[in-house]
């Protein structure tokens, strides 16, 4: 798969007052292949937006190499600008312009046929509000307008910085569907978002940035698998005795009301064998896989101790081959899948 975005060793330092310096991006790498929906994650101030701005030629990089469609940018930005649609942070528009006029002026400036304006307004669900002034738009509608502006050029690459900002759940779902449609049509999407659940749902690849550096990259499943602690939720009678037994076997065990969390066991059969040999029959055995949020928090230094209860950060995962045999089912595979969705 050919690369659409290549960033190697990007470095950007901002100078502040009194000769202070702040390193925003520190040797960051990013690789986005054609046709991917690529999630770009990082905490506030990690360098996400600076990276996107550097890629679009809005800030000047101190070092590193960036390419779009194989062309060096920003030196050759003009050559590829027609193939890239982008919004960076929440774009501001003139309040007294209508949505239609806002897009029309951009289309004119970019040499795009103005008939595209109505098409993209339709695409983002603003067709009926195109003649209203932007100052009457909600935050979500402005966000849709921004996405519409990025779509005007029928781009091959769409760079979206927090496109779900201000959208209600219905709007978020529409945005997700829109991105899937675009990806199906062959558009590569680089999606920066704080809504990790959305990223996990929509993206096939992910790059995580922290303190200006890449801390993880690859297919979403691969990144999650790389941080799998092989933990299991175990429901068993005589919980205290079972915990002691497993600890004696060298396994880390956390006790929780009604269940144990046992780590470091790739094969669930090992747990049921150890307990079964002592007459303790497991009634619940479910793998706990990390989700993107837990991986994100762990990698970005904002990681917390494992939560007391398996909650949003650790959620049950569906059984995979050779693991996750559910015994004495209180939780079914479908339940687990439902929890994930």
């Amino acid at each position: 798969m050919s690369a659409v975005i290549e960033i190697e060793g990007l470095r950007k330092t901002f100078r502040g007052p009194y000769r202070s310096r702040q390193v925003a991006v520190d040797g960051f790498d990013l690789l986005v292949g054609r046709g991917e929906i690529h999630g770009f994650l990082g905490p506030n101030g990690s360098g996400k937006t600076t990276t996107l701005r550097a890629l679009l030629g809005l800030v000047r990089a101190d070092a590193g190499r960036m390419r779009l469609f194989g062309e060096d940018v920003p030196r050759r930005s003009a050559a590829v600008a027609g193939r890239v649609g982008a919004i960076v942070e929440t774009p501001q528009f003139f309040g007294n312009f209508t949505g239609h006029r806002t897009l029309r002026l951009l289309a004119l400036a970019g040499g795009v046929p103005t008939r595209r304006v109505d098409e993209v307004l339709e695409q983002v669900g603003l067709r009926g509000r195109g003649q209203d002034e932007v100052k009457g738009y909600s935050l979500g509608m402005r966000q849709r307008l921004a996405v519409a502006s990025a779509l005007l050029k029928e781009p091959e690459l769409l760079i979206l910085d927090e496109p779900a900002n201000g959208l209600d759940p219905g709007g978020i779902r529409e945005m997700r569907d829109l991105m899937r449609d675009l990806a199906d049509a062959g558009v590569t999407v680089l999606l920066s978002s704080h809504i990790l659940g959305e990223i996990q749902l929509i993206c096939d690849h992910v790059t995580i940035i922290s303190r200006g550096r890449q801390v993880a990259a690859g297919p979403v499943e691969g990144v999650l698998a790389g941080h799998d602690q092989h933990e299991w939720r175990v429901g068993v009678p005589e919980q205290g005795r079972a915990a002691e037994l497993l600890r004696r076997a060298g396994l880390p065990v956390d006790e929780h009301p009604g269940h144990l969390v046992v780590g470091g066991v790739p094969d669930a059969g090992e747990i049921s064998r150890l307990l079964g040999e002592q007459g303790l029959w497991v009634r619940e055995l479910m793998p706990l896989r990390p989700d993107l949020e837990s991986v994100f928090l762990e990698l970005t230094g904002d990681g917390m101790e494992r939560p007391e209860l398996p909650g949003p950060a650790y959620e049950p995962a569906p059984a995979g081959p050779g693991e996750g045999r559910l015994i004495d089912l209180d939780v079914t595979v479908d339940d687990a899948r439902g929890a994930r969705a």
């Binding site: 809005l58 982008a86 501001q92 970019g110 502006s149």
Partner: peptide
């Protein structure tokens, strides 16, 4: 101050 220039430069990076 409103980012209009940024919008424009994304379209016309000259």
């Amino acid at each position: 101050s409103t980012g209009g220039v940024v919008n424009l430069l994304i379209w016309r990076p000259r």
